[in-house]
Design a binder for these strands. Structure first.
Length: 501
RNA sequence: GGCCCAUUCGUCUAUCGGUUAGGACGUAAGAUUUUCAUUCUUGAAAGAGGAGUUCGACUCUCCUAUGGGCUACCA
């Protein structure tokens, strides 16, 4: 049977990083088995619908290279893929359940239920209580039809038979068994917006869309037995998909799972892309805008809860697909370690060619075109080991483009002594004599000059660096002089002498 | 409260009854370097606790503890 999985987010805001990982695992699993993945939008809660969320989800996954074979934005033979557009389909199945006494109609109002919960500790709408409530089990058929005819609102609840052990065979956790008595008669059809709840819509759609594996977060594990019961009641049991409940992504400190509401307050983005909440106007940053490479984020996320059992850390999407397996997914939640995420980005950055980085660098800053492409690539290559993000390249290379306007005070105190100006004057004289200003040649001549004169290497070189860079940092000094050239090198030394005295 | 899931260095993890418990991030020290960084070397750092099962448990079972999830006409 062809593997078919789905990623089924709810458009209630930006997709967070945990959702991204779920999508990624679904994708890896599907591709590993030559199967298909579809995108279904679970918008059955009209109250929580957020404009733009659907587009955001699609753009995010697209950026990360997680591609759908079918679904919203792609189309396919099981369309529509937006649950709000499938209302009539669900209604048929609810009616089927009603006819077969697997579900019943209930008229209890939210306030009445609320009151019941307040007066009875651990109140649950189930086999032990439903006969005390207002529903088609306690009311006569006439009363029910009259109420409905009178326009009274009602919900449809599943009728859970008590005292039955229900076992869910989870691909990650093995057998999970619970007794049906602890389950409540969940609402399947809401009166508030005339739409099914997640449970019903989810089961019906997975069945109709021929889903073979349901790979979702662990927060769904408690309701998995309910879903199994729903498959049975609907007569879908023989086509029931397998379940795999993924461990959750946890906050780095304190406790709880990572959630949308964390925004930036944890000190790092929880969203793939920048996001502005349309209602509150609150802005949250995303990994893309923070400077992450999509491959790096994918690699980092893939390893949060899964590993191939080897000591390899860097994987391309193709390698991940090749190696992925659900039985190597861990069972316990993973705390999110942002520092490690940065390391992954650094690894991807240093693996990029100087030319490729130069292009990214060039577009990320608005520099003057004082250097040609080859020189720019050369400059980037000199410093790329030092940075995590492309946008950090500027602070590491600014002195190639601009002469220092100020000099780091500590370095001045340490490296610029009374005798330094005279030394620098001599250095200028030596530099003037050099015709081949390449790094190697300049270095040979200057170091030779220092040693024949018996000067202190550190005294000359550190002051020289201070004059060129303005601080005690930067790559090999003669790599800098070769790039900026003889005239600029001398000019900077003269300026330092003048400024620092 | 009830139910479910989990538990190896600070963090992500390897180990599928017999290992000096390995790797990575982070961290400490040292080396290299004319600066800073890189790089390299080395170090510190873990099986929650208690009972079993077994010749032998990190690994299997149970209990406890801790963490997490769920417990809506939200997903």
């Amino acid at each position: 049977m062809k593997v078919r999985v789905r990623f089924a987010p709810s458009p209630t805001g930006a997709l967070h990083i945990g959702g991204v990982r779920t999508a990624l695992y679904n994708y890896l699993f599907a591709k590993k088995h030559g199967g298909e993945m579809l995108l279904r939008i679970e918008d059955t809660d009209s109250n929580r619908f957020v404009a733009g969320a659907e587009e955001y989800i699609i753009e995010s996954l697209n950026w990360l290279g997680i591609k759908f074979d079918e679904g919203v934005g792609v189309g396919g033979q099981y369309a529509p893929y937006r649950q709000s557009e499938r209302k009539d389909i669900y209604r048929k199945y609810v009616d089927f359940l009603l006819e077969n006494k697997k579900a019943y109609i209930a008229f209890d109002k939210p306030e009445e239920l609320e009151a019941k919960r307040n007066e009875t500790a651990n109140f649950q709408y189930d086999a032990s209580t439903r006969l005390q409530m207002k529903n088609s089990l306690t009311l006569s058929e006439n009363e029910v039809t009259e109420k409905i005819a009178a326009g009274e609102n009602y919900v449809v609840r599943i009728k859970i038979e008590p005292n039955e052990d229900i076992t869910v065979n989870d691909l990650i956790r093995g057998e999970v068994t619970i007794n049906s008595s602890i389950l409540d008669d969940k609402v399947l059809w809401k009166s508030a917006d005339g739409l099914p709840t997640y449970h019903l819509a989810n089961v019906v759609d997975d069945y109709l869309m021929k889903i073979t594996q349901v790979i979702r977060g662990e927060e769904w594990l408690p309701s998995a037995p309910l879903h199994v019961l729903l498959y049975r009641a609907l007569g879908f049991e023989s086509a029931m998909p397998q379940f795999a409940h993924l461990p959750l992504l946890l906050k780095p400190e304190g406790n709880g799972k990572l959630s949308k509401r964390d925004g930036d307050r944890l000190g790092f983005p929880v969203f793939p892309l920048d996001w502005t909440d349309p209602k509150s106007g609150e802005k949250s940053s995303g990994y893309r805008e923070a400077g992450y490479f999509p491959e790096a984020l994918v690699n980092f996320l893939a390893l949060l809860g899964w590993n191939p059992g080897t000591e390899q850390e860097i994987f391309s999407m193709e390698e991940l697909i090749d190696l992925f397996s659900l039985d190597r997914v861990s069972k316990s939640g993973a705390k999110f370690d942002y520092e490690k995420g940065k390391w992954f980005n650094h690894q991807y950055l240093i693996r990029k060619s100087d030319e490729e980085l130069a292009v990214l660098f060039n577009t990320s800053t608005s520099l003057s075109n004082q250097f040609d492409d080859a020189t720019l690539a050369h400059i980037v290559g000199l410093v790329k080991e030092r940075v995590t993000f492309v946008q950090e390249l500027w602070e590491q290379t600014a002195f190639f483009f601009l002469a220092p306007t100020e000099y780091d005070e500590k370095t001045v105190q340490k490296r610029w002594k009374a005798e330094t100006p005279a030394l620098m004057q001599e250095l200028i004289v030596e530099l003037e004599k050099i015709s081949d200003f390449s790094a190697a040649n300049t270095e040979e001549i200057i170091l030779g000059w220092i040693s024949t004169k018996g000067y202190n290497m550190g005294a000359v070189m550190n002051a020289f660096r201070l004059a060129l860079v303005g601080a005690a940092k930067g790559p090999h000094l003669f790599d800098i002089t070769a790039v900026i050239g003889k005239a600029e090198t001398i000019k900077r030394i003269e300026k330092a002498i003048e400024t620092l005295k």
